[in-house]
Write a protein that binds this DNA or RNA. Structure first.
Lengths: 343, 343
DNA sequence: CTGAAAGCGCTTACAG
DNA sequence: CTGAAAGCGCTTACAG
């Protein structure tokens, strides 16, 4: 529209008295250019205020130095999930150091079609990070089957150029059971996320397996399906403690939000934590530190997950690896909602 | 590298027996193409698996349909700030419906140079959203002076194609003072953010002005500079209540995090909220609902800010407006840290 | 309603 | 160490 700043490689070539090819080589760090011309050209570019063009470069090179970010999932298909942000933060930092920028696909761009593969081809992204619940599975199917490198976070991608990284969710449950067991608890309940969630199912399986390993028996009524949100935890609390004689002594809630709801229910019932029941959450949200009493919970290493995702993707892009599946250790944060079971 | 899926407009033109120009017109919704050819071409594109190329289009059109996202600021130059996320969410949704995708600039891409203007030209973004504290001011200077449309959130951009939207921060303080006054409080203290923060300074000024409007006098020792984080609120609490005879009856903390710190200090001093002192925070973080007692605080309308930012930017891009400055109403959320002053 | 041709700004063999 | 030329995949006046 305006002055457009459209000084091109051609203009620079003319001013420097060399060919376009030479300018291009200088721009791309070729070694076979004499130091003198290099310096002169750089000076001229500086004076002229030359700006390279991403589209021209991408068109010629067929690679964009762009990474697509696909997010959708269990929390309202938006990116207000704190887990998402922190992982993406670390990812962005690492990938940025390698010269990549991030492209966020707006779900709405193509009227709900959400053909991510098409959009990846459109933008010629070099790779993708997919952070997601399980409801995206279908819309990313084409993409993960393609030869565009993809790393999944919390989603098990199985394509030819795909890999994933996630917390060892089985170990989350194991560490919780271990912790409870050592405190003397034998009657342990579980509040899960939706059963459409892979992550949630792994945690549940880990829970069942651990219970079994300790030779304990699991009351089927003590496995409650929630939806990760506060209200479902509240309802679980009410259900588990409506008859105190049949209540567990310890509860593992697979999200902090549900744990908060559970605490509210227990409070309303006139009971107290951890005197009447021990509780462990999962996520380590900020609020976990501020509830009364502060919530014992399990933290995922989001920084590590993000960094690993970036590094793994970079390896795919550079053809230094093909598929990779990595599990990251969780960490149990001990606070005040858990206590030794009174003998 | 591989099959590349490189069916171009040229191939389609050949198969359809028409010219490239016609294909291009169909792709761009020109009206002057016969319905028959249109349908035939669409079918052929479908069969052939044709994919358009963003770079080719951008190169020819000089517009990318990309919006640059610049974030930096008071919280560690990363995007884990909940305010940021929620605003950006709403922004993304709105801008996405108009066919734009979001480009996140990685700060590290150009070895800390952070010349955002250069990168905007490089990618030919159609506009930018800048969500930031004040320390970015310098690195966005070139950009906001240019003719690239920019909308600032929480930062007052003054360029020829710039505007901003933010909460009416003066009103935040006013509503807090109103609220306290109506409860009988006359001795009101303020815990601010860093004095490099524009937002913080507006709030402080609003605080001072409101105090004056009610004809109250402000004890200079009751204006404390924090840094938005928990610890500084804790220290402020200690300082304000080391001598209870000289303490305020009400405190406005300009962030929830500092309010949490303040609560901790009061608790440690053996005092209680709101019996000994009323407290209002600012942000309405998730944790505000879960602290004991639940925190009265001020909420910003992040959804509205994000939507407005998108709409304003779209108007700039479409040359339907030039500059715009908009303030959004805050909302005071009354919870349990505030009480009528005992007579 | 349709097409020929130039152009967008860069890179890439290839030749020298 | 340097350059001429073709090509990347699209759009845009312009002519018909």
């Amino acid at each position: 529209m305006k002055d457009n700043n459209s000084i091109t490689i051609k203009d620079i070539a003319k001013k420097a008295g060399v060919s376009q090819a030479t300018i291009s080589k200088i721009l791309n760090n070729y070694t076979d250019v004499s130091q003198k011309t290099k310096e002169r050209v750089f000076r001229i570019m500086e004076e002229a205020g030359y700006r390279p063009s991403h589209s021209a470069r991408t068109l010629a090179q067929k690679t964009s130095k762009l990474i697509g970010v696909i997010y959708a999932g269990r929390l309202n298909a938006d990116f207000d999930h704190p887990f998402f942000i922190e992982v993406l933060n670390a990812f962005k930092r690492t990938i940025g150091m390698h010269g990549y920028d991030l492209l966020f696909f707006s779900d709405e761009t193509f009227q709900k079609e959400e053909n991510f593969y098409a959009r990846c081809l459109y933008y010629k992204v070099d790779g993708c990070i997919i952070i997601a619940g399980d409801d995206v599975q279908q819309s990313i199917d084409d993409l993960t089957k393609s030869d565009i490198p993809c790393i999944g976070v919390d989603i098990q991608l199985e394509g030819p150029k795909s890999g994933y990284v996630m917390t060892d969710n089985k170990k989350i449950s194991q560490s919780v059971i271990d912790y409870f067991y050592l405190q003397g608890h034998r009657d342990i309940a579980y509040i899960g996320g939706t059963n459409e969630s892979t992550v949630s199912n792994i945690r549940l399986k880990g829970f069942r397996d651990s219970i079994k390993e300790y030779g304990l028996t699991l009351n089927p009524e003590w496995v409650i399906e929630g939806d990760f949100f506060e209200k479902s935890g509240y309802e679980a609390g009410l259900a588990l403690f409506k008859d105190v004689t049949k209540s567990p002594t310890a509860v593992f809630s697979s999200s902090d939000l549900m744990a908060f709801g559970f605490m509210r229910a227990i409070h309303e019932l006139g009971l107290s934590i951890p005197a009447d029941v021990s509780l462990i959450g999962c996520d380590d949200q900020l609020a976990a530190r501020y509830v009364q009493p502060p919530l014992t919970t399990v933290r995922q290493n989001k920084e590590k997950i993000g960094r690993l995702a970036a590094l793994m993707l970079l390896d795919f892009i550079g053809d230094r690896s093909s598929t990779a599946r990595v599990l990251v250790e969780p960490e149990l944060i001990s606070r005040k909602t858990t206590a030794q079971l009174a003998p």
